[in-house]
C-alpha cells in the first residue's frame, strides 16, 4: 500500500531526472537508430531483388519502411537499463542506499526506467508516426481490436525486457559484474527479436526456434500487431505466450534477486 502511495513521487522524480539527463537521453536515442539503418538497407535490397517471406509474403520497400519504423517505435517504448544500474550500484556500493528504503528496490528500478519513457517517446514518436502515416500507411493494421491489444503487447514487451535486465543484473550480486552476460542476451535479442530483420525472412527452422524464445515477444509481436500480421484471433494466443514469458521472467528475476541478496557482500566500504 505504501509502495503504491509512493509511486507518483517516484515517477515524478524519475521524470525530472530524465530531464536532467536530456543530453544523454538524446545520445541514447541516436544509439538506437539501427532499425533506421536497417530500413535503408532492406529498402535498397527490396528495390533490387524481390524479397519473399516464409509465408510467401512479398516484402516491398514500403513494407520494410513500415516494419522498421514500427521497430524503432517499439524499441523506444520497451527500453530498460536496470541491469547496468544494478551492476554500477553493486560495484560502487551504492546499492546499500536503495536497500535501506522501505520499498522494494526492483519497484524503484522499474519506476525509474518507466519514468524516462515519456520524454523519449515525446522526442522520437511524433516524427516516426508522421513518417508512418505519410509513407507506409497501407501497411498498418486497420483493425481497431488489434490496436486495442497493442498497449498490452507493448507493456508485455517492456516487462520481458525489464525483468530480463533484473534477472541478469541480480547475478552481479553473485559475480560482481554481469554486464557481459547482458551483452550476450542483447546479441541474441538483436537477432531473434526482429530488431535487425523481420523474423518472417528467417529460414523456417530458425523462425520456428525464434518463435519459442522470449526475444520475439519484446519487439516482434508488438510490431506484427501494428503491421497487421495478426487478426484478433491469432493475436490473443501470442499475447498469452508473451505474458507467460513475462511471468516466468518475473519469477526468475525475483528468485535470483532474493538469493543474490543473501550472498551480497556490500562491496565498496
Amino acid at each position: 500500500m505504501r509502495a503504491l502511495k509512493a509511486l507518483p513521487a517516484l515517477m515524478r522524480v524519475g521524470f525530472v531526472e530524465s530531464l536532467a539527463y536530456r543530453a544523454e537521453m538524446i545520445v541514447w536515442v541516436f544509439a538506437t537508430t539501427m532499425p533506421l539503418v536497417m530500413m535503408v538497407l532492406w529498402t535498397a535490397v527490396a528495390e533490387a531483388v524481390p524479397v519473399v517471406g516464409g509465408g510467401g509474403k512479398a516484402w516491398g520497400s514500403t513494407a520494410f519502411i513500415a516494419y522498421f519504423l514500427c521497430v524503432f517505435t517499439v524499441r523506444q517504448l520497451i527500453s530498460a537499463w536496470a541491469c547496468w544500474e544494478m551492476n554500477y550500484e553493486v560495484r560502487q556500493g551504492t546499492l546499500a542506499m536503495r536497500l535501506l528504503r522501505p520499498i522494494h528496490p526492483i519497484l524503484t528500478y522499474a519506476v525509474g526506467n518507466l519514468a524516462a519513457l515519456p520524454l523519449r517517446a515525446g522526442v522520437t514518436l511524433p516524427v516516426v508516426v508522421l513518417l508512418l502515416l505519410t509513407q507506409a500507411r497501407e501497411h498498418l493494421t486497420r483493425d481497431w481490436r488489434v490496436w486495442a491489444l497493442f498497449p498490452f503487447a507493448l507493456f508485455g514487451g517492456w516487462l520481458i525486457t525489464f525483468f530480463a535486465n533484473v534477472a541478469i543484473g541480480s547475478l552481479s550480486l553473485f559475480m560482481e559484474s554481469s554486464v557481459k552476460l547482458m551483452e550476450v542476451w542483447l546479441a541474441a535479442f538483436f537477432v531473434f527479436s526482429g530488431y535487425l530483420f523481420p523474423l518472417d525472412l528467417f529460414p523456417d527452422w530458425l523462425s520456428a526456434i525464434a518463435r519459442w524464445l522470449p526475444f520475439r515477444y519484446q519487439i516482434g509481436l508488438p510490431v506484427e500487431l501494428m503491421t497487421g500480421v495478426h487478426t484478433l484471433e491469432s493475436a490473443l494466443p501470442l499475447l498469452l505466450q508473451q505474458w507467460a514469458w513475462a511471468g516466468a521472467l518475473v519469477v526468475l528475476a525475483l528468485s535470483v534477486w532474493s538469493f543474490g541478496l543473501r550472498r551480497f557482500q556490500a562491496y565498496g566500504g
Partner: peptide, 23 residues
C-alpha cells in the same frame, strides 16, 4: 562515503521522495 541524494537534482527532491517512501 556513500550518498542517497539524487546527484543531478536539488536535495529538496530527495527530501520529498523520502517523505513519500516513508509515508
Amino acid at each position: 562515503q556513500k550518498q542517497q541524494l539524487l546527484w543531478d537534482l536539488p536535495p529538496a527532491e530527495t527530501f520529498e521522495l523520502n517523505r513519500a517512501i516513508y509515508d
